[in-house]
Simulated assay, not measured.
Amino acid sequence: MADKLNQYRSKRNASRTPEPVPEEPPEPRGGASFVIQEHHARSLHWDLRLERDGVLVSWAIPRGLPADPATNHLAVHTEDHPMEYLTFHGQIPQGEYGGGAMTIWDQGTYETEKWSEREVKVVLHGSRAEGRFVLFQTNGKNWMIHRMDPPSRAPLPDVAPMLPSRRSRLPRDTAAYAYEFAWGGRRLLVPIEGGRTTAAREHPWLRALAASFGSRTALLDGELATLSGAEVLVFYDLLYDDGRVLLDEPYEVRRAALETLDLSTPRWQTAPSWPGDARPVLAAAREQGLPGVVAKRLDSPYEPGESAAWLFIPS
């Protein structure tokens, strides 16, 4: 019987990688486990591995499992992996095959509905991956993965930015608002899905931001501002978070969710926000030569277009 791990071994040096590299051929067994690993290699992707005849039959999925039956995702059929890979996670050294960080995104069991050379239909039972999927071969060696269940989450909303109304003075009920600097930059909504963002077409440096989210899907609202001579993306709202649409949530709830993302690097960061007293914020905006402040009602939903719930007060 042919050794199903020959191709796997030929791509790895056991003395240079922490990956399991068994010396003996695999022995057939009848289990039905699966693992999905998030792999930050040369490009971010997810590896789906299904136990079959003593090995893990594997596909690399650049955008992760599809959440909606209307969208199929590419699935690149790769070499079979050893059963020890069910629990593998760690740092594959750069320069080695698949170099980069690998973590376990989900694991569990699966049921087989069909298994042929060109089509694999399974039901996954994991904590994050749950449902019916089919992997099918297209022209040549290409494979795709299709979700057969209804959508597993709400789709990313297509929404226009919320804009402040201009006022000459601060609101009277100051305790009902949070206050932020008006940055005087260019507004940018950033959708992130499958570790990628369409905003990177114009701003390639945002690829790193999207990759840092892994499989987490989000829609961020922010502004490209110039701070200390450098362009920085300042985020001040979160409109969608991993399947949950936040547009109808109060601003203070959206703001709290944004802060849990801990966005803080030299190129992107969370904008500071101060609830309550606006006077020191306005004074600081004047000192820094900023256009003014934006007062945001703590109880306001996200309303596309100009809204009286957000007020721009010039400095």
Rank of each mutant, 00 (worst) to 15 (best):
A160Y: 06
A160K: 13
A160N: 11
P161T: 01
P161L: 05
P161K: 05
P161I: 01
M162K: 06
M162I: 03
M162S: 15
L163S: 03
L163D: 00
L163M: 15
L163Y: 05
P164W: 01
P164H: 06
S165Q: 12
S165R: 12
S165P: 00
R166G: 04
R166Y: 08
R166D: 11
R166M: 13
R167W: 09
S168C: 03
S168N: 13
R169I: 05
L170F: 03
L170Q: 07
P171W: 00
R172C: 00
D173S: 12
D173T: 10
T174K: 10
T174W: 02
T174F: 04
A175D: 14
A175Y: 07
A175T: 12
A176K: 12
Y177Q: 05
Y177P: 08
Y177T: 04
Y177V: 04
Y177G: 07
A178H: 02
Y179V: 05
Y179S: 07
Y179R: 04
E180V: 00
E180P: 00
F181I: 05
F181K: 00
A182I: 01
W183N: 01
W183C: 00
W183L: 15
G184A: 12
G184Y: 07
G184V: 11
G185T: 08
G185N: 04
R186A: 15
R186N: 13
R187G: 09
R187T: 14
R187S: 11
L188W: 01
L188E: 13
L188D: 06
L188H: 12
L189Q: 14
L189I: 13
V190N: 05
V190M: 08
P191E: 09
P191A: 14
P191V: 11
P191C: 10
P191H: 08
I192Y: 01
I192N: 02
E193P: 02
E193N: 12
E193C: 11
G194A: 05
G194T: 10
G194D: 02
G195I: 12
G195L: 06
R196G: 07
T197L: 07
T197S: 11
T197W: 04
T198R: 15
T198M: 11
T198Q: 14
T198A: 15
A199N: 05
A199E: 00
A199T: 13
A199R: 03
A200R: 09
A200E: 15
A200I: 15
A200D: 10
